[in-house]
Design a protein around this nucleic acid. Structure first.
Lengths: 340, 340
DNA sequence: ACTAGTTATGAAACCCGTTTCATTACTGGA
DNA sequence: TCCAGTAATGAAACGGGTTTCATAACTAGT
């Protein structure tokens, strides 16, 4: 096996020093035309490409970023990823994608790997680490990491970590959604959440409760149920709800997946959406507009979210000032699943 | 800003040489217990973690892989990614995710970036590069790359590149699907493909044609239409189909996305699936079983595909023998969208 | 007590680039 | 023609680890 070509090989064959080769590669200082051409020809001949690791070692920036998320299979995350990727690519950064499935060990393991790989920054999307309540040592783990490598929390919160945050105002989104349901005449509204300690669930539930109370509508404890964020869980939770003696006429779901699962459960019992029960999702994933019935949901503008998060991260990397919190406005998207 | 702690710092403070520190870190040679403890304590104290880049530079393996795909938003790809990730993580590899959107420049740019980052191997999922017909220079670009870095093509073919392939037998999948439709009594069957030069479309179309002809059923040119792989395209293409004077009673779609788009178009015109037209997808993405109607489709076992591809890639990286082609069997999944 | 045989440790080279600093090769002006 | 000043180039250090090879410090055997 032929060893990889290095600047030294090029230099030797061109009869110049490695410094000159480097100068030709990076146009960092003038080189005599004939020399330049000779070196350039050799680079072309061997398809030489400098070793990025060696360069990174010296420059102390790897041009690599890590993005950690619970589950790439939930279409919300690919959307965010795309936004992040587009923005990152523009600045020459490549992205490690790390799925944790909400598993804490996996999360820690990835954190360690990313540090090992010397990523310049990390994007954290709503995972375990983004919980409202979180063991002190996890907070400290992230806080310590954040001292070395900039970490941006996306749609999440980790009090005491000192990380910058970029998030959609999910509370406002839920408020708009509930108000839409109230306006449509619903007075019996349920809530299908995710894990109760995740900030995304917590915020939505808070807005749900507040908005109903402000309107003088009762919040029925038995109609507030929790699952995870999968379709299966949405279906199961809805089935539990349907076993109650009294049912709501509408439910808000923590995300589109849960909504679809819920609808499946309803349809499975011969109930119709929205006639028998209105169902609303959250995130406005592509699914939402293609599902039958089309889903009423709250758009997060997920790509923009990813893009913005990267922008904040880049600012931190460049030691420019970045605001601690960047909030994006959600948008209510009314479709068939709650419609008249 | 305090400089990152290095082995030298640890060595100095412990009063030993860097060699000893390295030995403690890697347990690569016996170290006197007292020395070991002293060094270990310092590592703990500073939360020292060796610089992976420096190590990679020497070991000539970065423990990083690249995975290139057209579009992470198509749920088939996250599935494959997960399979790949799980297997890769088990061996300590981290994955760069690169979306090309079928754009050739993006693809080339990513190829170059991955080389720069010194990835140990690359997984190529059905992108531009996986076309049946492909300009010579693209083939050569990949062939040349494959000389330096192992490349595995997933669900694709690039004749002359010399790359190993891992793929689902999509032809067989399509054959099973068409036979299922024939058995259900359909004699007027259409095909909604993707880009005609992509091997995935080509193979499916071939199997479609062959199976119909073998059964003595006419293949109607005007019922074979092409789009891309998106839901929007599926809808548009179906709308074109519906404008014809004569319509098929069933259509095979290149993937689940296209099928969903097609169904949307049908429903939009007040037609019912499967009664007015049977629609089949491909890939068995999670959507398929949750959509209404549930989609008849061909399961690729996408996670296994990713996992297997990584296995082949790892074998190549370790210079173990790997079979040139690994074929996975697809599985027909019959659900409502073609059902009685 | 002395030697042979381990065990523990350190100095230095290496990986592959970039960059500083010094030196050499030019150029133009007097 | 000679000198100052600029352009082009090279030697060597650096980044942060790992590894080889030699040496130093023990241990055990006689």
């Amino acid at each position: 096996m032929n060893r990889t070509v290095t600047v030294y090989d090029i230099a030797k064959e061109a009869g110049v020093s490695v410094a000159t080769v480097s100068r030709v590669i990076n146009s960092t200082a003038p080189v005599k035309a004939t020399t330049r051409d000779k070196v350039a020809a050799l680079i072309e001949k061997y398809h030489f490409q400098p070793n990025g690791l060696a360069r990174s070692l010296l420059s102390k920036q790897s041009k690599m970023l890590g993005i950690i998320m619970p589950n790439i299979k939930n279409p919300f995350f690919p959307d965010v990823f795309r936004g992040a990727e587009i923005r990152a690519a523009k600045e020459g950064y490549a992205l490690f994608l790390c799925n944790t499935l909400g598993n804490e060990e996996t999360e820690s393991a990835y954190l360690s790997i990313l540090r090992d790989k010397q990523v310049d920054g990390i994007l954290f999307l709503g995972g375990r680490v983004n919980r409202v309540r979180c063991p002190k040592d996890r907070v400290q783990e992230v806080a310590a990491l954040n001292q070395r490598i900039p970490v941006v929390l996306v749609n999440g919160q980790l009090v005491g970590s000192g990380c910058c945050r970029v998030y959609t105002d999910e509370e406002q989104g839920m408020r708009m959604l509930v108000e839409h349901l109230l306006q449509a005449g619903h007075r019996r509204i349920g809530f299908l959440g995710g894990m109760i300690d995740d900030s995304t669930t917590k915020q939505k539930l808070k807005a749900f409760t507040d908005t109903l109370q402000a309107a003088g509508v009762e919040v029925r404890e038995e109609w507030v149920l929790h699952g995870d964020y999968s379709m299966t869980s949405g279906m199961n939770v809805m089935n539990r709800l349907l076993e109650l003696a009294e049912r709501p006429t509408a439910v808000c779901c923590v995300n589109d997946f849960a909504a679809i699962g819920a609808i499946k459960a309803l349809v499975g019992r011969g109930l119709r959406v929205p006639d028998d029960m209105a169902v609303a999702g959250f995130d406005d994933t592509p699914l939402a507009s293609w599902y039958t019935p089309e889903l009423t949901t709250v758009s997060q503008n997920s790509e923009l979210l990813g893009e913005t998060a990267i922008e904040v991260l880049l600012a931190l990397i460049r030691k420019q000032s970045a605001r601690k919190s960047t909030v994006l406005a959600p948008e209510l998207v009314v479709r068939q699943s709650t419609g008249r």
